[in-house]
Nucleic acid binder design. Structure first.
Lengths: 340, 340
DNA sequence: TGGTATATGAGGAACGTGCCTCAAATCAAC
DNA sequence: GTTGATTTGAGGCACGTTCCTCATATACCA
C-alpha cells in the first residue's frame, strides 16, 4: 500500500480536495465538524504531507541567517566552512544562507546587528552569541516576527529561542576532568585557562571539571582560572609564571586562544610531562594532538552542528517535529589516534 | 537568481525540452553534437537536477535490503532499531527497507540467503557480514544485476561493493591501545578477549592495539587473544583462569559477548583495579560504564551508521556524488561522563 | 533526387501539493 | 420562505521533472 495523498484523505473524509487543503493548511471557512472529519481521516490513513512536493508547489525558499563571532576565532571559521559545505551538498534544499559575523565582546554591537536583520524576509536565525538581556530582547523580537530561532554552540536558556544545538558544557567539563584525572600520573596542580570567565560556557565547563576532579581525584588541586582576554602576550606571561611557581601536572584550556597557550607550553619545555586538554578541533589543536602537545581534545563536530542547525531550522519553519536522536550533538573525545 | 531548470537549459542550448530530457537521462536518439550543446549549457548555468521533483515525477521508490547478523547480538539489535527510527523519521524519502538476519558463523547460509534476494525488485543492499569468497561472489552477482551494494560496519575490501560505511578497525584498535596505556597505572599484562579471531575486525583491532602498546607503553605486555566463540561458559572459565594465574592490569574486549566477560570480571572481584575497555555502546556496556566496570567504550554511532547507509544507497542509485564529510563514521570514545 | 533512417520539436499527462476562482449548496436569522 | 452569509465543491494552473506520442526536420545512402 502506497502512502496516502490528499486525494485519499478527501475520499476517506467524504469531502472535496479543496476542503482537505483548507483544513491541512489551517485556512478559514470550514465548519468545526468538517475539520474534525478531515483530521479523523488523516489519522485513520496515517497521512503525512510530502514536504518536498509541498515545497515544490509553493516555490518555498528557506532564508536563514547565521550569527557567528568575528575575529580570529578558529572554531567559528571552521563552523563557517562546515556551513558552506553542508549548504553546497544539500543543493536541492531550497535554502539561502547568510552568515553575519559580530564582535563577541561588544553586546551592544551584537544587538545593533540583530536589529538590522530584515525580519520580513527571514525564516530562521541561528545564534552563537553570549546571553545578555539585550540578546534576549532581540530574540524575543525575532520570535514575535515569526522567525525561528536556534541557539548554536552556546545556549540562550532564558530567551525564547526554539531550540539549542550544541553540547552540555557541564558534561563536557566533567569529561575533561575525568580524562585529566586518569591521564595524570602523579599528584599536583592543574592549571585552568580561559578567554574570559564571563562566558557561560567557561563557567559551566569549570563547574563540571572541578566536580569530577575534587570528587574522584584527591591528589589533584585545580588552580583558580587564568583569563587571557584574547591577548597572546598576557596568556604567555601568565602561563610561564604559573608553571615556574607551582607544581603543575596538567593544563585545561576551556576556551579559544590555544595557539598562544601551546606556544607558551612549548617554550617552557614542559610539554612532555604535562597532560594538556583543550576544547574544539581546529588546525591548531589537531596538530598539537599529533605532536603530543595535547593529550586530548574535547570537541563537538562542526559538520554536525551545521547540518543539525539547518535541519532544525527547516523543521521549525514547517512545524514538523524534530528528530532528537539525530540532532543530539555528542561530546567527542579526540586523541591522537582517532582524529576524524 | 533562481536555480536553473530544464527549461533554462533548453533555452540556453537552443534545443527543445525533450532533447534536454533525452540527454540528461541518457536516452538514445541524440547526435553527439547536440549532446555536447546541452551538456555545455548545463555547465554554463550550473544546473543541478532537483532530485525531489524528479523522484516525484517518476514515482520513484528506493527498495533496500539490510543484511545483519542474527542471534543475540546487541549491536545488531541496536542497529536495527536505529534503522527503523531513521526510516520512520525520513518518512518522505520514498524508501522501503527490509531487514534480513543471517547466521554469521555459517558462510554458506549467508550466501544462500543472498541468492534468494530478488534482484529485479531491488535497488540497494547493505551488508554486515564477514568477507568470504562466496560473499564476494554474491556481491559481484548483485552488482551485475545493477544493485547498489554497501558494506556496513565491517568492510568487504576485495569485493565489488560500492562503498564502505564504518570505521577503520586498525585505528579503533590503536585508540583502545592508547587509552589503555594511559589509563593503566602500573606495569603488568593486558588480557585481550574476542569472539573469534577469524573475523577481520578482531584481527585489525588487535593489530592496532598491539602496535600502540608495544610502541609506547613498555611496561605493558599484551597476552595472546582469548576466543570465546559466543560461549558464555567458556568465556567465564578462561577469564577466571587467566586472572588467577597472570598479573593482569587491563582487559580489552574486541568483540561482542561483553555480558559474559563483565560477569566474569565482577565475580573475580577485580573490577576496581582493572582497566577494561570494550567496543560498541549497548545496554550492557552502557551500564558497565556507569557502574565503573568499563573504563571506556570505543564505539560507532548506530544512528549515524543507519542514516549514512540510507543516504549513500540513495546517492548511489541516483548516480549522485557522496558527501564524504557527512558519511565518515567517527571512532567515538565513550566514558562515564559523555554517554550520549 | 528520392527514399529511408535518424534527430529533433512540440505538446501533454502525471507525480503530490498549494493556491486561486467561481459557482453551488447549506445554514441561520428574519 | 426569503435573504444573506457562510461553507463546500469543482476545477484549473503551477512547481520541476519524467516519459510518452506524433509530427517534422535533417542527414545519409543508393
Amino acid at each position: 500500500m502506497n502512502r496516502p495523498t490528499v486525494h485519499d484523505i478527501a475520499k476517506e473524509a467524504g469531502v472535496s480536495l479543496a476542503t482537505v487543503d483548507r483544513v491541512l493548511n489551517a485556512r478559514p471557512g470550514v465548519r468545526d465538524k468538517t475539520i474534525a472529519k478531515v483530521q479523523d481521516a488523516v489519522v485513520r490513513l496515517g497521512y503525512v504531507r510530502d514536504t518536498y512536493a509541498a515545497n515544490l508547489a509553493r516555490k518555498r525558499l528557506y532564508r536563514f541567517v547565521f550569527v557567528l563571532p568575528e575575529g580570529p576565532n578558529q572554531f567559528a571559521a571552521s563552523l563557517c566552512a562546515a556551513l558552506d559545505e553542508a549548504h553546497a551538498a544539500q543543493i536541492s534544499d531550497r535554502t539561502a544562507i547568510e552568515i553575519v559575523r559580530v564582535p563577541l565582546r561588544d553586546p551592544h554591537a551584537i544587538v545593533r546587528r540583530l536589529r538590522q536583520l530584515a525580519v520580513e524576509t527571514l525564516d530562521g536565525v541561528a545564534l552563537m552569541v553570549p546571553e545578555t538581556p539585550q540578546v534576549r530582547d532581540a530574540v524575543a523580537r525575532l520570535k514575535a516576527a515569526g522567525v525561528a530561532v536556534v541557539a548554536l554552540v552556546s545556549d540562550l536558556p532564558n530567551s525564547r529561542r526554539d531550540h539549542f544545538i550544541g553540547t552540555n558544557s557541564v558534561a563536557a567539563g566533567r569529561t575533561a576532568g575525568l580524562l585529566m584525572g586518569r591521564f595524570v600520573r602523579r599528584p599536583g596542580e592543574v592549571l585552568v585557562v580561559s578567554n574570559s570567565m564571563r562566558a557561560r560556557d567557561s563557567l559551566e565547563r569549570r563547574l563540571g571539571f572541578d566536580a569530577v576532579i575534587s570528587g574522584e581525584f584527591a591528589g589533584l588541586r585545580v588552580l583558580p582560572s587564568v583569563e587571557s582576554f584574547d591577548d597572546p602576550a598576557r596568556m604567555s606571561a601568565v602561563v610561564t609564571e604559573v608553571l615556574a611557581r607551582r607544581d603543575v601536572v596538567g593544563v585545561y584550556s576551556m576556551g579559544s586562544g590555544n595557539t598562544a597557550l601551546l606556544d607558551a607550553l612549548r617554550e617552557s619545555g614542559r610539554i612532555g610531562d604535562l597532560v594538556s586538554i583543550a576544547h574544539e578541533l581546529t588546525p591548531t589543536t589537531e596538530s598539537a594532538l599529533r605532536e603530543g602537545a595535547l593529550a586530548a581534545v574535547i570537541a563537538q563536530n562542526v559538520g554536525h552542528l551545521a547540518r543539525s542547525a539547518l535541519r532544525v531550522l527547516r523543521a521549525l519553519c514547517d512545524g514538523l517535529s524534530i528528530y532528537e536522536a539525530q540532532e543530539r550533538v555528542r561530546i567527542e573525545i579526540i586523541l591522537r589516534e582517532n582524529i576524524s
